[in-house]
């Protein structure tokens, strides 16, 4: 841990899978101009990259910005320097979680957590469990607004309430456990 904290933020980001391209950015703004969700970002995509380069760890990791990425890869296709901003924003999300930041103004991390919880429980995603988990840990009343959509999916046989567990669930647990041992040892 001590090693991570003394390392510069820029260096830490560049060492996460997907964060390698951060040093290549020339601040042309193509990513921001191409982003379908840029208007809801706290700092725009190109601003976030500039902030990482300026080593603004706290401001970046506590912001809701990267959580607004829709993973549509428009920026990645258009970036003239192959920064791969989509992967970079995923890397920033993972660092925010790793260091315990809880960004305000976005419930996307809660949704992602609920999603991954469902995978860890069954080996596959149960969309129903994922949505229930999300609404219960954010605002259960907001689920009311979803009732019309949920009912349509349910009544068309597209939202089974029970989850199917894979046979190799224990194997999957072992893989994840071993991975974290290997990672921790280094």
């Amino acid at each position: 841990m001590e090693k991570t904290q003394t390392m510069s933020f820029l260096k830490e980001v560049s060492q996460v899978p997907g964060g390698e391209g951060v040093n290549l950015c020339i601040q042309c703004g193509t990513c921001t101009a191409s982003c379908p969700s840029a208007k809801i970002w706290e700092y725009t995509p190109s601003e976030v990259i500039a902030m990482v380069r300026a080593d603004m760890r706290d401001a970046v990791l506590s912001s809701s910005s990267m959580w607004c990425c829709l993973s549509c890869y428009s920026c990645t296709v258009r970036c003239p320097r192959d920064v791969e901003p989509t992967s970079l924003f995923h890397a920033l999300e993972s660092l925010a979680i790793k260091h315990g930041y809880k960004p305000k103004n976005t419930t996307t991390p809660v949704m992602y957590n609920s999603f991954v919880k469902s995978i860890k429980k069954n080996g596959r995603v149960s969309e129903f469990q994922m949505m229930m988990g999300y609404y219960l840990s954010t605002n259960p009343f907001s689920a009311l607004g979803m009732m019309s959509v949920a009912w349509k999916l349910l009544s068309h046989g597209r939202m089974p309430l029970s989850a199917r567990k894979i046979k190799g669930k224990k194997d999957l647990d072992k893989i994840v456990k071993k991975l974290n041992e290997v990672r921790g040892a280094q």
């Binding site: 993973s71 992602y112 046979k167 999957l172 893989i175 994840v176 991975l179 974290n180």
Partner: peptide
Amino acid sequence: DWNCCGSTPYGSLDELEAIAVAAR
């Protein structure tokens, strides 16, 4: 007995773990 592909949300929270899940 396939498992979840790894998914975008998993990769956002922990890329390495998501890759291992995909790798199975």
